[in-house]
Nucleic acid binder design. Sequence first.
DNA 1: TATTGTTATACTCTATAACTATA
DNA 2: TATAGTTATAGAGTATAACAATA
Lengths: 150, 150
Amino acid sequence: MTQLQDMYEESRRLSQLLVAVAEQAKANFAQSIAPFGIPVHLARAVLLLDSPAPMRELANGLACDRSYITSLADQLEERGLIARVQGDDRRIKLLALTEAGTTLRDQMSDAVARHSLVLQRLTSEQRAELAPILKTLAGSGATEVARAEC
Amino acid sequence: MTQLQDMYEESRRLSQLLVAVAEQAKANFAQSIAPFGIPVHLARAVLLLDSPAPMRELANGLACDRSYITSLADQLEERGLIARVQGDDRRIKLLALTEAGTTLRDQMSDAVARHSLVLQRLTSEQRAELAPILKTLAGSGATEVARAEC
DNA sequence: TATTGTTATACTCTATAACTATA
DNA sequence: TATAGTTATAGAGTATAACAATA
């Protein structure tokens, strides 16, 4: 009984810690991209556009509605970071990074990695230890991994 | 050079995984409290109100503005979960759980712990391994741990 | 008929600024 | 003067529903 309660208490603390760390990781991400003068939601889209992708695909990738992607695309276009390109299926529009977009993506990707908490605070041994546990935790939801961060 | 890039790549993946897991943990939290018919932001407040606390304190705890706490308190009051109590300093109002609030908090606390990913997917060995790494990751931000989950 | 992207609109969460009452 | 809470208002981010073009 007490044993069970203790286990609950422990896992509660662990969950809190996990979410707290993730919040920090997000704040860290925001800080890493801040110098580039681009809001977080646009940055995530740019980082996701490794190759030209249908808007629908981006909607899946960011786990949000198609209509929201339209507004993201508008903003990215205004900034000259992407272009809308006709797909073979003429209903489809591909979002393709412009040269400026590609440059920005590379720079941001680098900055994000370099400043990451994981890199700054953990030894390579700790990282090696952490990875499999997180994978287990991610479980079947691992398919959605791409979504969450971007 | 390539070694550095590899390390970046590894830590990028790890960060993504971390955030993805945390997203799942949050979704899990939401699911755990869903049966109680209370929105997430109210649930967090209730779980934080272990003992009567000034609204100011709750604002710190939830890392948000005082004005937002006013609206949370209004909603919690409407639901009969808390009462506003005069503090000794008469500028201060303490938020105190009612009997219904206390009952709800206990039930939710239990449900959240029981359904937690950490408990469901990890062995106690893995949990023991994870804890110190997360603490390291949380680093000096550990003070803000209470904030993030609640 | 089903799907892609678009438009117009509305909602949720949260903050800012100005205010009141205490201290 | 500074602080606690309140009010009114506004903004960011995102969704819903109806629509046009294409399949």
